[in-house]
């Protein structure tokens, strides 16, 4: 197993670098660069632009810039953000937690609702309750999340029950820990809901499908025939096997944990990485984009690897090392 993991990780390095190279080239060859915004200021001269160019090292040839970046990477330096004038790592660090909390909240919320819902729907297959759930799932799947966020915010503004965007109330500095946490949780509700509703619908469908698959298997029949209590058959034998395929999904979710959701973040004023990236991509803040892509890439690799390893642990039929 250890060898397998090592091999996968070694393969991953050129992949991630290749991805960043592609990103870099794409950012560079498309027209426009970061300094264009400054260029539109009537009071800025050509020389000043030149000075900025030098400061951000935009005057060097493209590949030299990239190699320089990779070189610095091995010294754990991720470059400088043009837009924010500070190292990229600091920009990202300032928002990492926010994105993580939101992703985690919506992840937990999704899985905690969707899995039981899927099981319940499967056990009541084709009865009206199942039909209702499936129909609503289709509706939820077809609503864009940013629209949901806007609707929630509008409702919140009418009822005054939930805060309108942001992460904290305006007075959060003067709050004690408990009040502050409550305040934070309240702010978390709308973006979490907006992000989760679609995924709940999707995950619920997958879970229901898996459960139905497993319930029609021979060994469940056998277990029932043996006279095991129904609860045990379902929650011990069936459930375990129905959840296994979801592990791959879990790995995928892991890789998305820090990618953020730009539109929701913008609408809910949630200071996460998604909206940061959107501006970075649009204003060509190259190194900020690169660092984020790198992070996303690494998480993607780890997530997939984690899923494969977990799958092997859970399912004895899967073996990665041929020698065993």
């Amino acid at each position: 197993m250890g060898r397998y993991i090592l091999k996968r990780l070694l393969v991953a390095i050129p992949m991630v670098l290749g991805m960043t190279l592609l990103t870099f080239i794409l950012m560079q060859i498309t027209p426009g660069n970061f300094l264009d915004t400054i260029r539109m200021d009537p009071q800025v001269s050509e020389e000043t632009i030149g000075h900025y160019q030098k400061m951000y090292q935009l005057d060097k040839p493209m590949f030299q810039q990239y190699i320089h970046w990779v070189y610095n990477l091995f010294h754990l330096e991720f470059g400088y953000s043009f837009y924010f004038n500070i190292p990229v790592a600091k920009v990202i660090a300032g928002r990492l937690f926010n994105t993580f909390v939101l992703s985690l909240a919506s992840f937990l919320f999704t899985w905690m609702i969707a899995i039981p819902l899927g099981i319940w729907a499967a056990l009541h297959r084709n009865r009206w309750i199942d039909r209702c759930i499936q129909f609503f799932s289709f509706i939820c799947l077809s609503l864009p999340s940013f629209l949901l966020a806007l609707v929630f915010l509008f409702l919140a503004s009418q009822t005054n029950f939930l805060p309108l965007g942001g992460m904290h109330g305006p007075d959060f500095e003067n709050m004690n820990f408990f009040v502050r946490s409550m305040d934070f949780l309240k702010h978390l509700i709308i973006p979490t809901l907006a992000l989760s509703i679609g995924s709940i619908a999707a995950l619920q469908k997958i879970m229901r499908g898996n459960m139905l698959d497993v319930l029609s298997q021979q060994y469940i029949l056998a277990a029932r025939a043996k006279g095991l209590p129904e609860d045990r058959v379902i929650y011990w034998h069936a459930l375990r096997n129905a959840i296994n395929p979801l592990v791959t999904l879990l790995g995928y979710e892991f890789s998305g944990l820090l990618s953020g959701a730009a539109l929701i973040e913008i609408i809910c004023s949630w200071p996460g990485l998604g909206s940061l990236m959107l501006t970075a991509v649009r204003s060509k803040d190259i190194y900020l984009v690169m660092a984020n892509m790198l992070m996303g890439g690494v998480l993607f690799i780890i997530g997939n690897l984690l899923a494969d390893v977990l799958l092997a642990k859970l399912d004895p039929r899967i073996r990665y090392d041929k020698k065993h």
Binding site: M19, L22, L26, M27, S259, V281
Partner: peptide, 21 residues
């Protein structure tokens, strides 16, 4: 590996970058 490289880039940003091209 090529597929994975494409999948690694979040779709929305890829969309934007390609649109710029």
């Amino acid at each position: 590996r090529l597929c994975e490289m494409v999948m690694m880039v979040p779709g929305f940003y890829l969309l934007l970058a390609l649109r710029a091209a």
